[in-house]
Design a protein around this nucleic acid. Sequence first.
DNA 1: GTAAGTTACGGAGACCGTCTCCGTTTTGTC
DNA 2: GACAAAACGGAGACGGTCTCCGTAACTTAC
Lengths: 198, 198
Amino acid sequence: MTGNTEPSGRRPRSDKQRNRSHILQIAEQYFTEHGINGSLDAIAKRAGIGPGTLYRHFPTRESLLAALLQARDEELDARREAIRQEPDAARALARWLDAVGEWATAFDGLPEPLREALTENKSPLTLTCQGFITYTDEFLHAAQRDGKARNEVRARDLFLSVIATSWVRNAAMAEESSPSALRDLMRTGWAAPAGVDD
Amino acid sequence: MTGNTEPSGRRPRSDKQRNRSHILQIAEQYFTEHGINGSLDAIAKRAGIGPGTLYRHFPTRESLLAALLQARDEELDARREAIRQEPDAARALARWLDAVGEWATAFDGLPEPLREALTENKSPLTLTCQGFITYTDEFLHAAQRDGKARNEVRARDLFLSVIATSWVRNAAMAEESSPSALRDLMRTGWAAPAGVDD
DNA sequence: GTAAGTTACGGAGACCGTCTCCGTTTTGTC
DNA sequence: GACAAAACGGAGACGGTCTCCGTAACTTAC
């Protein structure tokens, strides 16, 4: 591969690429510390660049977020492949949903834009979300085929549940309420009642 | 009752009360139109008062919200009394959770501060939330006594689930996904498996 | 190596929302 | 009507978002 697809046929300038990855690195740091609602100008300042440069690279907070998350995509893809080996379809679905839940908790406040991405489908995150729903659907179907998941459950709803659970996590952790209580509640919701074949 | 509890033993000034209720009226309107994240100064302007006056009455967005919701408390109290008559404890709990869910959807974006109120317990909304959890606990206990709800479920978690479901509602409504899918998922989660006595 | 052309950078500043401070006005009391 | 207390209003400080355009950096051609 030649390395890039710029609008013109030219290779992108070296400083552009350098800045881009530097921004991503700083943003990752900053969002980890302050949650995704931290000041973008502050990120620019910390990165030692002007706000204009930041916004040229990432016109919106969501696009920056999307770029950050894309870096984690590979990891999650690998995880998905591993889960595919799981023979028990219910356990596979459960593990996949856990993985998504973890992914959605990467930064404080992340669930909010994810939810928005699902409604306004103009967000750079929309595609990622829809991909996840598709994968969820695969695991869900497998579980349903095996009679391990209720038939009326839909992948989209499961995805939303996971996001919602992640959203609530902060609150759940504060009190003695275990963070997994909601996850369990949800799992009981989609799992088929224990049958004779179990 | 003499009508008030001012810091000094005095009755509050008439214009104060007038302004207060006028603000509430306008804010209700404004939040209904724009969601709870609309500009507070805009509310002041629409109410024909200065920002200072608004902030003197309601120092934070949450306190304004709390005052608005308090107006609905009576309605919900009445509803709770009605639900108490319900003989089937599972149905009662379900109806109560529906009621809370509706309450939490009064304004766009309301679930967010509710969740925060549960963590930071410094929000004016904290008390209201805890009240709801207590009521939920009553209904839940009744259902558990009757073997209609799983014993490991906790009221706080149910409340969080309801809030989370309300939070997701916008997204759920956008696509063909029925808004009730999550509610059903949740209900299946807390309901005890259908027993012989059913 | 350097000139020309292109691409990207930087930061001043417009705009908007939050929230405060204090001079002015309204209200209640005697 | 005069006085004190309470409440009002809005100018403006502050911080965040985002843009515009003069300047600098990079690339290519020669």
